[in-house]
Amino acid sequence: MKEDEYADFERRVRENQRMVYQIAHAVLRNPEDAEDVAQETFARAHEKRAALRDPARFRAWVAQISRRFALNRLRANIRTRRREEASTPNAELHAVDIAGIAEERVFVQRVRSAIEQLPEKLREVMLLSAIQDLDHAAIAQMLGIPEGTVRSRLHLARKQLLRTVDR
C-alpha cells in the first residue's frame, strides 16, 4: 500500500469515525463498547479495503460494518448478562435514587427508558435518525429497507414514545 493510500485511508477514518461510533452507540447504548466497535470497524475496513470497488461508498460501507459488529457485540452482551443474572438472582441492577434527581434528569431517564422498551426495529430507526449526519436515505441503505419503511417506523416509534412518556 502506497503512502498516499494510507493518508487517504486515515483521512476517511477521521471523517467518519464520529458517525461510525454513533451508529455503534445507537445499537449498544454503551460508550466503551461503541469505541471498541468503531476501532474494529476501521480495522476490518482496512483489512478488506480491496473489496470496496467504489470509494464513494466508503461511508455507507463502514456504517454497515459498524452496525453489524455492534449487533454481534450486543448479542454477546445479552448472552453474558443472562448468564450473570442467572447466577445472581434478585440482583438490583438499576438502583436509582429518583427522589434526589432533578426534574430534567428524571425526564431524560424516562425518555431513555421508553426508547429501550421500543421494539428493536423501531428503536434502531429512532436512534439512528437521531444521529445528526444520517438522513433517511442513509439509514434505509444501512438497514437494507426502503426509505418509506424508515419513515413509517420512525413515525410509529415517536408516537409510541409520546404515549409512553406522556402517560
Binding site: 447504548r29 476501521f42 425518555v111 431513555r112 437521531a130 409520546l162
Partner: peptide, 27 residues
Amino acid sequence: LVARIDGVARAWMDASPRTEISVRFER
C-alpha cells in the same frame, strides 16, 4: 413534548469517542 423527546434522543446519540480512533496500521 415530542420536540423534547427528540432532543433527548439527539443528545443521547450526539456522543463522540473519548479518544481518536487509532489508524496506525502496519505499513
